[in-house]
């Protein structure tokens, strides 16, 4: 019995990769290596960066000045990744990240974006009604806080550096990183001390 025919999409991909390789644009194993890098990335990386920034002023300065260098300093491979911009929340200022045009997301330090980040509903409402979106997430900002939405439209990828909750002063890096969830790193939630 002969094996079933390859699905058309798989066949097309194989032919596309062969055409790129023939032009010297693709090395053997390059696609697999890139998939492996993205598979290894997770919000744990971004959380560790935030926790370190909370306890190390020098690292915080590096993170805000050059997100890519700060990620590489944590051992993250940034080759081929877009520049990483880091948005520092401050007393009275909260950032919320969205990509209204598609689904730009700092994959190198957060991994794959969650489904909701890519939905038309989130992308449309985050810019038009950010406070309504935050309320639906159960996120309550301190009175008088300005909301700054960052629409990720071009070459940068953006991550939020939230404010450290005062209750967590003195905590170790691992415990601090534990309260910095994926949602916190995009700005739909705040870190909650537990």
């Amino acid at each position: 019995m002969s094996p079933p025919p390859r699905p058309a999409m798989v066949d097309l991909l194989a032919r596309f990769e062969a055409a790129l390789a023939a032009r010297g644009l693709l090395e053997p194993g390059e696609v697999e290596a890139r998939i492996a890098i993205t598979d290894r990335a997770s919000p744990a990386i971004g959380a560790a960066m935030v926790a370190r920034a909370w306890t190390d002023a020098g690292y915080r300065a590096l993170l805000l000045a050059d997100g890519r260098a700060a990620a590489e300093d944590m051992g993250v491979t940034m080759v081929g990744s877009p520049p990483l911009g880091v948005l520092a929340d401050a007393p009275g200022l909260h950032h919320l990240v969205v990509c209204t045009l598609c689904s730009c997301y700092p994959r190198a330090v957060l991994g794959y974006p969650p489904h909701w980040y890519k939905t038309a509903a989130y992308r449309a409402r985050a810019v038009r009604d950010p406070r309504g979106v935050l309320a639906e997430w159960g996120t309550v900002l301190p009175e008088g806080t300005r909301v700054r939405v960052v629409d990720s439209t071009a070459d940068y990828r953006w991550m939020v550096l939230p404010e450290q909750p005062p209750e967590t002063l003195g905590w170790g890096a691992e415990r601090l990183a534990g309260i910095v969830t994926r949602d916190v790193l995009v700005g739909v939630a705040l870190p909650v001390p537990v």
């Binding site: 810019v127 038009r128 009604d129 950010p130 406070r131 700054r148 939405v149 629409d151 439209t153 071009a154």
Partner: peptide, 26 residues
């Protein structure tokens, strides 16, 4: 490439004064 800030209202006919949107524009 610039980061350009737009005040939330009047960009949208709703929202809270003081809020804004940052966008990367060429």
């Amino acid at each position: 490439l610039y980061h350009v800030a737009f005040a939330q209202p009047p960009l949208f006919a709703e929202g809270t004064a003081g809020d804004d949107i940052l966008i990367e524009l060429f």
